[in-house]
């Protein structure tokens, strides 16, 4: 008895499954599909991104040939932004410092944030405020050539109010934000390239030593 009921049910289901479409009553209806797509963000940061990268002293007129410290390069796209030996009380420009290539799926664009994980720290002790020492300004991809000088207008990096994962010399940090600062750039398009030079304005009172700071770039889709 149970067996025959099971066969009947199975047969009925098969009949429903393989029933010809023409035998059904088609009732048109709207199907509403809501998608919540996670933002996809890809950031590629290339330091020393073009031939001729390096630091020049702020000078009017003919510009000196860029040089750099030992931690920059040696090749294009490699190493730190190392200004090398600098004098206190003097300003410098670092050409072709950082290229950011941002790809997102945000049709409304994105915000780019750039902040120091800490102040400009002397590894021998002490520090200088990053907001009055390390600056950024727009550059070119290399074509046409960058015409900035050490006197070109630039904007200061700020020390983050977020929580950096590290402030040590050898460990690239990330920053955990509870609120975002003012962006350094706003892109209305999903993808964009940013080319930056850096400036270093060494305070007259800066003590001798090896200084460093990590600049952290963050992309947040709008």
């Amino acid at each position: 008895m149970r067996k025959s009921v099971g066969w009947i049910v199975t047969a009925a289901m098969l009949a429903m499954t393989f029933a010809p479409a023409s035998a059904q009553t088609n009732v048109p209806g709207a199907v509403h599909v809501k998608w919540f797509a996670q933002a996809i963000v890809k950031v590629t940061l290339t330091p020393n991104y073009f031939t001729g990268f390096g630091a020049v002293k702020a000078t009017f007129g003919a510009q000196p040939t860029p040089t750099h410290g030992p931690d920059a390069g040696p090749g294009v796209g490699q190493g730190s932004i190392d200004f090398g030996n600098v004098l206190s009380g003097t300003d410098y420009l670092y050409k072709y410092a950082a290229h950011l290539q941002v790809t997102t799926n945000s049709t409304t664009g994105f915000n780019l944030y750039g902040e120091g994980a800490a102040d400009f720290v002397n590894q021998s002790g002490g520090s200088e405020p990053i907001s009055s020492t390390v600056f950024y300004l727009n550059s070119t991809s290399g074509s046409p050539p960058d015409t900035n000088t050490g006197f070109s207008g630039a904007l200061p990096f700020q020390r983050t109010a977020g929580t950096p994962s590290s402030t040590s010399f050898g460990l690239p940090p990330t920053i955990a934000y509870t609120g975002f600062p003012a962006p350094i750039a706003v892109s209305p398009t999903p993808t964009a390239d940013f080319f930056y030079d850096y400036e270093l304005k060494v305070p007259p009172s800066a003590t001798g030593g090896n200084y460093f700071v990590w600049i952290v770039y963050t992309v947040v889709p709008q």
């Binding site: 030996n85 009380g89 270093l200 009172s205 952290v216």
Partner: peptide, 27 residues
């Protein structure tokens, strides 16, 4: 569905500072 993404990158800025005796002439 997890989508891999990187939205932070960092670069290190360095300099070796030498004190300049003339740095305080004009400030």
């Amino acid at each position: 569905v997890v989508v891999a993404q990187t939205n932070q990158q960092a670069v290190r800025v360095e300099a070796e500072v030498t004190p300049n005796p003339n740095a305080t002439l004009l400030t």
